[in-house]
Design a protein around this nucleic acid. Structure first.
Length: 587
RNA sequence: GCACCUGUAGCUCAGGGGAUAGAGCAGUGGUUUCCGGUACCACGUGUCGGGGGUUCGAUUCCCUCCAGGUGUGCCA
């Protein structure tokens, strides 16, 4: 379905032309003065210079040509040259009736669907997910869902950190603790044990210990670097250990992502890039773009127009080992080969922007991607505590994601129990659903690139711009629709022209849905979905408060309102699905 | 040092070349013969960090300064 703004512009364009002005001036936006009008066109002011005429005169000319249009209830010129428009209630009702029958709720699928690899997990094996993994997971999940809704093929890849120094650190620490294990004997030729010599909780303790040691002990660090290199070279014992680490970590990571309703199509990692590294590096050497510098192999990525120094992209460290840039580049090679994407879209901490600038330039220079393959980096900001500093536990440590989710569910549980007589088991279930909405909405309602303050009290509140408030609104609508159905009536009517201001306001919000969604995708901005549903929920609640629906005597009018509610519910539910959460039946 | 990002109400945040810059929270007061009051309504708050420039019009674009954050070759 066409956007309502497009339809209005199409109505206005001929009026501009007939009045003797270029149709290009017929640009329409939602009004920023709702007290005066619903839509506005500023084209008369833009045209004033070209036609050497007062804007108000131009606006008047155009409006004269709109005489007799069925689309508008009113069209007025206002100083200095605004064209103020109000839609006719009948036109709006027709539009919404069509929207209700549209399987995509009026959203037009992409004309040319793109294949996009979305890289958004960034979890490291052997390390539990912590709060730092929250943003990429839920922002990525949302962008994936929005993209799919718009008709694109989105391939979500968790891109595990499973090939870097952290692996060497674990190996070294393990060797120190259990030196007799066969994995460490170079001349071992037998079968390695099937069972890992550690559990997930062991790993969660081993890694931080090793990481700490390596910062204090240069020799220890050296050993870890060495082990990393040997692992990458395929030393059998280390590869076997690596397998164990993967086998132990993956189920745990999956369980945690599941809890967030975050899923990936691909569970690949840095290690999957390994088979592509050697060829890629050789090609870079052959092409003459890679050079030795201070013992490392680097590719220069500076460009003339740079305003700052961009250091060369390091392909191989001086000890010959691969590093972050190496696996990212080789992963591009793999993705191009396996999926032929039109775009590769990365979601990581914004502090990695420089790294991706280097990687993207290097990939282009080395011809790893096609000329028209888009490489996009979306950097997100830090999640801060109430003090405005990066979120920490009370003792200053990094908080686990599990802990954070648990805290929110607990908070939600108490709020639900405080206000209702409800079975505790039921309340626990509801708390999970509502808690997830609090967590995700709290995060997604902020612009991704900005830092934001994580405030559990605010996010879990049923009042204000929060997930629970949105869910409450949906649950309330469901309740009315259920009562209507229980009364034996069928929801098969059609919407009628709005009777009240609040009803029309609600309808106008609904009509904005397709344009909003398109924009949210183009700008990779889930927060626009949040701000939209908040407006929509408000519009609904206002309408609800002044309209008695179930006691309405005019059956046709009642049926029309039921339609309006049903559409409102559909749009709200579609939007929260885009954000990655759902509504309970009751709360 | 250099580069990038941010600076909007007491707090948390939207918005964005145009008409009177908006929400929520917090505060005060109201609304119930109640379809879920975890709702709705009303009231107050701003040098849009400072200064210049472009423009008919700047909070929005450009320059500069200030403040904070981040990055700046072998971690990821």
């Amino acid at each position: 379905m066409k956007k309502i703004l497009t339809l209005i512009e199409q109505e206005l364009a001929p009026a501009f032309e007939q009045a003797g002005y270029d149709a290009g001036y017929a640009k329409v936006t939602v009004s920023n003065r709702p007290d005066l009008c619903e839509f506005q066109c500023n084209g008369a002011m833009a045209a004033a210079k070209a036609y050497k005429k007062a804007p108000i005169m131009i606006a008047g000319d155009v409006i004269a040509k709109l005489e007799g249009s069925r689309m508008f209830e009113s069209a007025q010129a206002a100083n200095p040259g605004f064209i103020n428009l109000k839609l006719s209630a009948g036109f709006l009702a027709d539009y919404l009736n069509e929207m209700r029958e549209d399987e995509n709720l009026s959203v037009e699928k992409a004309e040319h669907p793109k294949t996009i690899v979305l890289d958004y997990g960034g979890a490291n094996v052997a390390k539990p997910l912590h709060v730092g993994h929250l943003r990429p997971a839920i922002i990525g999940e949302s962008i994936k869902r929005i993209g799919r809704f718009m008709g694109h093929k989105i391939i979500g890849d968790v891109h595990l950190g499973d090939w870097g120094l952290q692996m060497g650190l674990i190996i070294v620490e393990l060797k120190e603790r259990q030196p007799d294990l066969p994995y460490f004997k170079e001349d071992f030729r037998g079968e390695y044990p099937k069972e890992a010599p550690f559990t997930i909780s062991d790993l969660e303790e081993i890694y931080p210990t090793a990481s700490k040691k390596s910062k204090e002990d240069a020799q220890y660090r050296e050993a870890a670097l060495q082990a990393t290199y040997q692992l990458q070279q395929g030393r059998p014992g280390y590869v076997a250990l690596w397998r164990h680490i993967m086998d132990v970590s993956l189920p745990d990571l999956k369980a945690n992502y599941d809890r967030l309703h975050v899923t990936f199509d691909l569970w690949k990692g840095e290690s999957d890039a390994k088979p592509y590294i050697a060829d890629m590096v050789q090609n870079m050497r052959d092409a003459g773009i890679a050079r030795e510098d201070q013992g490392a192999l680097v590719v220069d990525v500076r460009e003339e127009k740079d305003t700052k120094e961009i250091p060369p992209c390091i392909i191989l460290k001086s000890d010959g080992a691969a590093l972050y840039a190496t696996t990212d580049l080789a992963t591009i090679v793999e993705r191009m080969k396996l999926y032929q994407p039109d775009e590769i879209f990365y979601i990581t901490d914004k502090r990695q922007e420089m790294h991706f600038t280097q990687v993207f330039r290097c990939a282009r220079k080395a011809g790893l991607v096609k000329e028209d393959t888009k490489l996009t980096f979306l950097g997100f900001g830090t999640m801060n505590g109430k003090d405005g500093k990066p979120f920490k536990t009370r003792d200053g440590g990094v908080m686990r994601l599990q802990q954070l989710i648990g805290d929110i569910e607990e908070e939600m549980y108490h709020k639900i129990m405080d206000n209702h007589e409800i079975d505790p088991g039921q309340a626990r279930e509801t708390a999970k659903i509502v808690g997830l909405s609090a967590l995700k909405y709290g995060d997604l309602s902020n612009q991704a690139p900005k830092d934001y303050v994580f405030d559990i009290d605010r996010f879990t509140s049923f009042e204000g711009n929060t997930g629970p408030y949105i869910l409450y609104t949906i649950v309330r609508i469901k309740s009315i629709l259920n009562k209507y159905r229980e009364a034996g009536k069928r929801a098969d009517g059609r919407m009628m022209p709005a009777k009240s201001e609040s009803e029309k306001a609600l309808m106008l919000e609904l009509a904005r849905f397709n344009a909003m969604m398109e924009n949210a995708f183009e700008e990779a901005a889930p927060h626009k979905v949040c701000s939209y549903i908040y407006d929509l929920a408000n519009a609904f609640n206002r309408f609800y408060h002044e309209t008695k629906i179930l006691t309405e005597e005019d059956a046709a009018r009642q049926a029309a309102w039921i339609c309006l509610l049903s559409l409102t519910r559909s749009v709200l539910e579609c939007c929260i699905d885009m954000l990655g959460f759902e509504a309970p039946e009751r709360m």
